[in-house]
Design a binder for these strands. Sequence first.
DNA 1: CCTCATTCGATAACAGGTTATATAGCAGCA
DNA 2: TGCTGCTATATAACCTGTTATCGAATGAGG
Lengths: 179, 179
Amino acid sequence: MAEDLVARLGHLTLGSRLKRLGERLQSETSRFIRAEGADIPASWFPVLASLDRAPASVGELAEQLGVAQPGVTRTVTSLADLGLVTVAADGDDRRRRTVALTAAGAALVERARRDLWPRIDAAVAEACGGLEGSLLEQVAGLERRLDDRPLDRRAAELATTAEHAAPVAPATPGAEGVS
Amino acid sequence: MAEDLVARLGHLTLGSRLKRLGERLQSETSRFIRAEGADIPASWFPVLASLDRAPASVGELAEQLGVAQPGVTRTVTSLADLGLVTVAADGDDRRRRTVALTAAGAALVERARRDLWPRIDAAVAEACGGLEGSLLEQVAGLERRLDDRPLDRRAAELATTAEHAAPVAPATPGAEGVS
DNA sequence: CCTCATTCGATAACAGGTTATATAGCAGCA
DNA sequence: TGCTGCTATATAACCTGTTATCGAATGAGG
């Protein structure tokens, strides 16, 4: 009955499995965001969130977000095409390009911070809540819970009981950032 | 000081983070395999492991491995190009294509089962060992441990203290064929 | 000043996952 | 018999990550 072989292989295939689970979370999150009328992929939000704290160069974003530089370049290009950020050559060092939110970008972040992020965060927290045991066991548990109720459904249903929406990452620069 | 913003955002970006971590495990595993002289990506092994139990159609593989069908088609095509599997039209239902290991494929699986998988499994288990707490905390912990000593180094070093290489997957009821 | 190594970012190519769609075969039924 | 619809696979296109590499700008040293 087609049990999941990858799951059965245990640690051997943890990589595949985490990747699959991550993609699933991303895509369900994106679906929720789309349903809320903001048609931008979930993966762009970290860049926006960072820029909301302060403008930054491409390399700074890459370091801050922990992704490779070409990934940032691509996302920034897309954001610029949508008019959400500006990209300007740095005055001091003309190799650097400084990325900053436009008014539209800031408005989007504002809205996301208010309406979207708290619910996404709460939905993920709910899906992960109470999981116990080893990493492998918790991964399996999260997979099961998402089978049961996907993330976008969880986030949408949280909407109805709005007071759940807990405040998310208080964007204060590094204050609580234990790293 | 560029703490990891994605990590700071907590549950909100768990998807990105899991995906990144999974990719990292996959690529470090592939690096180890390459260093051992078998130049095939880690992501192909689940297919080989499944076929080692029994030939299967593309759709059966997809279901068993929990991935989408086109992904299986692509992997199978590559494996066939390398002569590790054969793909033959099913006699009963000519829509189906039955995939089976060749002798070379079976030999590779044999070797992997003996020399590679136990060490990879042990290395991952070592990297995950003793992690505690919530999923988020364990993910952070695993990231830190891999920063400290990447998976391929762990697997390689296990080699030297060979008796560590505990028989692995046998753990699960049938990594070698039971179920 | 000039040269040369380094750094920044863009670009290209690849990986491994996805969805959407086209095609071919099968099967039920009028 | 032939239509109609479902199923199995392949193919195309996309996403978001990666590495490798290149050009331009910087800056240190001779």
